[in-house]
Write a protein that binds this DNA or RNA. Structure first.
Lengths: 202, 202
DNA sequence: TGATTTTTTTGACCTAGATCACAGAATTTT
DNA sequence: AAAATTCTGTGATCTAGGTCAAAAAAATCA
C-alpha cells in the first residue's frame, strides 16, 4: 500500500501532463505509465544522445533543460531546447529507425522519464487511447516544426529574435546567447549587435 | 450493384494509397471513405484556400499539382508543392481552428478528394484504425517539416538546390523556376545563376 | 502563325549578416 | 579570492545573395 504510493509518486508530472493535454483521459493510464516508463539522470554537460545512433526512446523532461544540436561543417546548429514537461526525442531517427544527426546535451543537471519506442508502440496497438495520445503529441511536434520553418523562411535576424522574445521567453531567460544565436541560425556577433541596438531603443 | 461499383471507382486511388502506407489495413475502410470523402475540381490558376480563412478540410490530390504559399511584405514564399497522392491542408489552421496564413493555388487543372476535419475526427473517435491512420500521416507530415527545416537551417543556396534535385526531382521537373526559388527561400536570379554554373560544370 | 504575356537569364551594383580579431564580463575551477 | 576558462560585445572587413534593370527565351493567346 505504502509502496504503491512511493512507486507512483515520481511519475505524477508525466501523468498530470498527459491528463492536462489530452481531453477525456484520466487516471486509467497510471498502470501503463508505471510499467513502461523509467527514470534517467544526467549531469550538466553530459550527452544523452549522439549523432550516428538510432534513437529508440522517447523522453519526458522532469527537471532541467537540454538542447538538441546538429554539427555541419564544424558549425553548431541548435535544433531545439527542452524544458520541464517537454517530450524529447530525435524524431526522424525514432520514426525511420535510422541513424540520427542530432546530439542531445544537458544544459543543467536533469531528470528524464523515458519509454522505448517498442513499448510505446505496443501501447498504441493495444489501446485506442494511447494511439490518440501519441497522435495528439505528434500534432504538437508537427505544429512546432511548422512554426519554426515559417520563422526561417520569412524572417530576418532581428525579426527572428523578436519572435523568440515574444513566444519563447523561457529560452531568452535561461539559455546562453551563443546557443540562442545558433538556434536562430545567426552568429553570436549578430545576436549581440541586435541586442545592443534593442537596448538603445528603449 | 452496378451503382455501387460506380460509386467506389473514383475513390480507388485514395483507398489504395492508404492500404499501401498503413500496414495491416484492408478494404474494410471503403465504406467509411465512400461516406465521408467528396470530390472537388479546380482549374489552373484557381485558389482552393485563401489566407485568413480557417481551413476545415483535409484534401487528397487525385490529379494535378498545386502550391501552398504565404505572402509576407509583398514577397511570395512557397510553403509546399502537392502532387497526385499527396494530402493537402493548412496544418496549423486545421489543428488550431484559427485563421491560416497560407494560400493554395492550382498550378494545373486538378482533382481533389476531401473530408471535413469534423468527419475525420468522428472516424478517429469511432475507430482505432482511423486514429492510427491519422497518426501515421501526421508522422509523415512532421518528418517532411523537420527535413525542410534542416535544409533551411544548415544549407546555402546551392546546397538547397542540390538537395531538391536529389530528393524531389518531381519538383524540378514540373514546377516553374520562380516557384522553386521561392520554395528554397532564394530569388529567381540566384537560382538562375546556380543553374547556369551547374550546367557549366558538366 | 505571329502578337502578347510571362518567365528566365545576365550584368552592375548593394546590403544583411558573416568572419576575424581582440577586449571586457561572467562563470567555473582550484 | 586568484587563476583559468568560457562567454559576450565591438570594430574593421568581406561575401553570399539580394536588388534593379533590361535583354532573351518560352509559353500562351488570338
Amino acid at each position: 500500500m505504502c509502496l504503491k504510493i512511493i512507486q507512483r509518486f515520481p511519475l505524477r508530472e508525466l501523468a498530470q501532463y498527459i491528463k492536462n493535454h489530452v481531453p477525456g483521459v484520466g487516471d486509467e493510464l497510471l498502470p501503463d505509465i508505471e510499467e513502461n516508463f523509467r527514470i534517467r539522470f544526467l549531469g550538466k554537460g553530459e550527452h544523452l544522445i549522439r549523432e550516428g545512433e538510432v534513437c529508440k526512446n522517447v523522453y519526458f523532461v522532469k527537471k532541467g533543460f537540454l538542447r538538441n544540436y546538429v554539427l555541419k561543417d564544424g558549425k553548431d546548429n541548435t535544433v531545439w531546447f527542452f524544458f520541464p514537461s517537454d517530450f524529447l526525442t530525435v524524431f526522424d531517427s525514432l520514426q525511420l529507425k535510422s541513424p540520427g544527426r542530432e546530439n542531445t546535451e544537458a544544459l543543467s543537471d536533469s531528470e528524464l522519464y523515458w519509454i522505448s519506442l517498442e513499448n510505446l508502440e505496443a501501447l498504441n496497438l493495444k489501446s485506442h487511447t494511447w494511439e490518440r495520445i501519441s497522435r495528439l503529441f505528434t500534432i504538437q511536434f508537427a505544429l512546432q516544426q511548422q512554426a519554426r520553418l515559417f520563422m526561417f523562411q520569412t524572417m530576418n535576424a532581428e525579426e527572428k529574435y523578436e519572435y523568440l522574445c515574444e513566444n519563447f521567453p523561457k529560452i531568452i531567460q535561461y539559455i546562453p546567447n551563443q546557443y540562442i544565436a545558433s538556434y536562430l541560425g545567426i552568429t553570436r556577433e549578430t545576436l549581440s549587435r541586435i541586442r545592443s541596438r534593442r537596448k538603445d531603443r528603449r
